[in-house]
Design a protein around this nucleic acid. Structure first.
Length: 681
DNA sequence: GTGGATGAG
DNA sequence: CGCTCATCCAC
């Protein structure tokens, strides 16, 4: 039974089908809809998925006819196959010659690649021949993804009504609740007034509509036990409105940018996602609330997000089934005892179609990675350093493309992953604040990280290297909260209490804050890019000298306590200049001795390896002094209780990894670093 | 905060 | 398959 959703199957007043005079939903539910509350039973979520995205990108780029079979090649494999080609039985795990055999008419396009020394990726002829010297670039697809995202945002109402979450390069979630709420009030005056007796628990009147035009959308069938003859209620109206919105969004993407997409519309992210995959390509699927049970029952639960991997396997083996239908009969207590309380509870609810995870109004990435699997494997630091140059150039150009400079976001850490056979190691270092990021700085840090891995031993031969930047959202927290700075979007959100209230207060979308909120009463926005000397040629355009406010917060301490802070000029003029400024970084020539000097992250300088300990001691002493000056604020930042329960996903059960085989030597270093860190914190 | 693992596409 | 991106967790 659907006892888990009392508002669906049984209502406090649940007379014969079609005879109810009241809706199953209350005025409170309607208000929740306007708030995009994650618990609102009228909620409408959409998932839009571009069809065979990489293949479509190439088709659009090359002007290839849409019915032409087309596949995208990456080295020897195919990573995307368009729908015309799929009719020939092509799939992703097939090689080039087999594909050609099955479909002689197939067009195969290799992805773009980066070549060492080039300042940009390009579509190279005969790319496969250069596997040893090029790395693939997915930039073309990221760029198209951005255009599509912009298109979606353009056709939807402005934030905060608009809520768009970029789920991957070719997928978005939309929370249409708030928009639908305003449409409902507009179109149905009978519910636009206040609740009778001002009592929000009063039930709404029934919709005046008696039959809905479900258009040509794929409507998920109902189980025989469900009642189709029931008159539509407000959840049906809401989801139909959602479907109309999605139709418009998809049409805009289609007409403006030539891309087809598929979509699912449902009451939560999980069902919407399953729905978008139900009918492809170029179709949309509505999963009404009353159809959820039946729709979900037909699936293997390993198709549900988070159950596609080891957790799913574990559930399969512990309950001897992979079907949702079977698992529904397992009592929650048994799920909890076999999977752990949190995971068991999460599984219990998710297979019943309950998912209250929110659509995060987030479209910006949090990390960026450039990687290469070596074929053949490489054996020297020389080779590795050459790849680092490519990685750095790649990441740098993507940083510029992302507009991170304009948005006042910048990565905080640089990370180098290294693989030797099955052994994976990584080292990361902070990206020094106080001056603009450029290629030579990143290259220096990357070389240093490589050095750290190399001196640990067992570095060669190396089969894979990845360089990444991360920690995009965090500016320096040291100055916050003191001057009452109003910060932008993501940062403001990060400062909010972690738990949303039960009615789901709309969170701030950072992307398009109104101008009046950008401009502060008198505070200015803390610009954490231009602390210290201004060396980058763009810098003069960022800061407003007349606006200088020496910030001498005592929290800001350490080796860089003498930094000054500048405020940002948000004039449109400056904005234009900024966005048109081109990045043209140049790398210093490769140095033979690069691994013999040591790069100090603290002051961003290269130090002879022989002077390393002395230099570190100097920092240590300086840190101690700084700490003594600032022994005030306790700052309990630990209590960020993320008790979101199962709303966001299953809680991982205990690691139970097979004992870590890594070397004990590491412990020395780890402990010494830990001790050092403790003194600082 | 760091390094490793999982999971998705 | 190879390349990304996000999240979680023990340390």
């Amino acid at each position: 039974m659907s006892s888990s959703q009392p508002f669906l199957a049984s209502s406090p007043i649940s007379p014969a089908a079609g005879r109810r005079r009241k809706s199953r939903f209350t005025y409170k539910h309607l208000t929740q809809l306007g708030n995009s509350s994650t618990t609102c039973p009228l909620r409408v979520i959409a998932h839009i998925d571009l069809d065979a995205f990489y293949a479509q990108c190439e088709g659009v780029r090359l002007g290839i006819a849409e019915d032409q079979p087309l596949a995208v090649q990456q080295w020897q494999g195919l990573i995307a196959i368009n729908y015309p080609a799929r009719k020939f039985g092509l799939n992703r795990h097939i090689n080039i010659v087999e594909a050609k055999k099955l479909c002689p008419n197939l067009i195969i396009q290799h992805v773009a690649t980066w070549k060492e020394g080039d300042e940009k990726w390009a579509y190279h002829k005969d790319a496969f021949a250069h596997i040893a010297t090029h790395k693939v670039s997915l930039d073309p697809y990221r760029l198209e993804s951005r255009r599509i995202l912009a298109c979606i945002k353009d056709v939807l109402p402005a934030p905060p009504i608009q809520r768009v979450e970029k789920a991957s390069v070719d997928e978005v979630f939309l929370d249409l609740s708030a928009q639908i709420h305003s449409i409902l009030l507009e179109r149905y005056p009978e519910i636009s007034g206040p609740a009778p007796y001002d009592d929000p628990t009063e039930f709404l009147p029934r919709p005046s509509t008696t039959a809905l035009d479900w258009n040509t959308d794929a409507l998920v069938d109902l189980d025989v036990s469900e009642t189709e003859d029931d008159d539509p209620d407000w959840d049906d109206i809401a989801i139909l409105l959602g479907s109309e919105i999605v139709r418009l969004v998809r049409a805009a993407i289609r007409e403006r940018l030539k891309y087809t997409s598929s979509a699912g519309i449902a009451r939560n992210k999980m069902i919407a996602k399953l729905g978008s995959g139900h009918k492809k390509p170029n179709q949309q699927t509505i999963v009404r609330n009353r159809a959820v049970q039946y729709f979900l029952g037909e699936f293997k639960f390993t198709k549900i997000r988070n159950l596609g991997g080891k957790l799913g396997d574990e559930v399969v083996s512990k309950f001897a089934t992979d079907e949702v239908k079977e698992l529904l009969s397992v009592p929650i207590e048994q799920l909890k005892s076999k999977l752990g309380d949190d995971t068991g509870t999460w599984v219990y609810h998710i297979i019943r179609g309950e998912d209250s995870s929110e659509v995060n109004a987030r479209t910006q990435i949090k990390s960026m990675l450039s990687a290469k699997s070596f074929r053949p494997i490489i054996n020297t630091s020389e080779q590795a350093v050459r790849w680092l140059r490519i990685f750095v150039a790649d990441i740098m150009s993507r940083l510029v493309e992302e507009g991170v400079l304009e948005n006042k976001r910048r990565p905080k850490t640089l990370n180098l992953h290294h693989r030797q056979g099955a052994q994976m190691r990584s080292r990361q270092a902070p990206i020094p604040t106080g001056r603009p990021i450029d290629e030579s700085m990143m290259f220096d840090i990357a070389k240093n990280l490589l050095g750290q891995i190399v001196v640990d031993g067992r570095a060669w031969p190396c089969s894979n290297l990845q360089l990444s930047v991360g920690g995009f959202e965090d500016g320096p927290t040291g100055n916050r909260g003191i001057g009452g700075f109003l910060v932008r979007g993501e940062e403001a959100k990060a400062m909010m209490p972690s738990g949303r209230d039960t009615d789901g207060v709309a969170s701030t979308n950072d992307d398009e804050l109104p101008e009046k909120r950008r401009r502060l009463n008198d505070g200015g926005i803390q610009n954490f890019f231009q602390k210290g000397e201004i060396s980058h040629e763009d810098s003069a355009e960022y800061s407003d000298p007349a606006d200088h406010a020496g910030n001498t917060s005592p929290v800001q301490s350490g080796p860089s306590s003498d930094e000054t802070s500048e405020r940002v000029n948000y004039d449109e003029e400056a904005k234009t200049k900024r966005s048109t400024t081109q990045h043209r970084g140049t790398l210093a020539p490769l140095q033979q001795s690069s691994l013999e000097s040591w790069f100090c992250d603290r002051c961003s300088k290269s130090i002879p390896i022989t002077a390393k300990s002395e230099h570190e001691d100097w920092h240590f002493a300086r840190d101690l002094q700084a700490q003594e000056r600032t022994t005030s604020t306790p700052d309990p930042r630990s209590d960020s209780s993320k008790a979101t329960g199962h709303a966001q996903g299953p809680k991982k059960t205990q690691g139970t990894r097979p004992g870590n085989l890594s070397i004990q030597k590491r412990i020395e270093k780890g402990q010494s670093r830990l001790a050092f860190g403790n003194k600082l914190s």
